[in-house]
Amino acid sequence: MDGIHDMGGMHGFGRVEPEQDEPVFHAPWEGRTLALNRAMGYTGVWTIDQTRAGIERLPPDVYLSSSYYKKWEMRLENMIVDLGLAGRDELDAGHALRPGKALKRKLTAADVPNTLSRGSFSRPAPGPARFKAGDKVRTKNIHPATHTRLPRYARGKSGVIEAVRGCHVYPDTVAIGRGENPQWLYTVVFESRELWGDAADPLLKISIEAFEPYLERA
């Protein structure tokens, strides 16, 4: 999706402003929002890529003007309503008005220490990797209206495979409910001038993590 979330290379956002002694959460609701996302993810009702797509679907003006955890909170409400897990009327009332659905599992406090680490996204490969380190590739010029992890600034660009990272769940299909569809994942390196033109910093290189369907042989 060519959305506002795809920010690489945009101008006009100003300075980066690090905050001294930044707290982990700026308000208690931020921590609760993170924990709610984590606990609902644990039930198996959605995948991480579906949640990323949920943020990307927020209207651009809302995306830009909302804090990070506010975006998470709105995404959580939207996904809960869209999946029929609760009604907007219940969120407005602040209480359940109907019984819940049966979900696969529920996170307990005892399980929490084991859920703090990420799961594996590796999957058995359906076939051999098409590329190897050192191969020249070109990213495709694709513009799907749905979730993708190929950023705009790196589409239609020539680069070099630096590493093969294994075969992983493919975000572009899993985000739209079309299955994990495992694909080989590569680190692809670009010269700065290939991405940003002749005025680019000549000592800069940029890499993305690219799934095989994003790439063709150059």
């Binding site: 609701w29 609760r32 929002t33 709610l36 606990a39 609902m40 039930t43 909170e73 959580l76 409400e77 809960i80 897990l85 609760a86 219940e90 969120l91 407005d92 009332a93 602040g94 209480h95 359940a96 019984p99 819940g100 659905k101 979900l103 529920k106 996170l107």
Partner: peptide, 14 residues
């Protein structure tokens, strides 16, 4: 967030 948490707890999800 409190409303959301309450609803999800009452539904038995969390």
């Amino acid at each position: 967030v409190r409303a959301l948490e309450t609803v999800l707890a009452e539904k038995g999800y969390i």
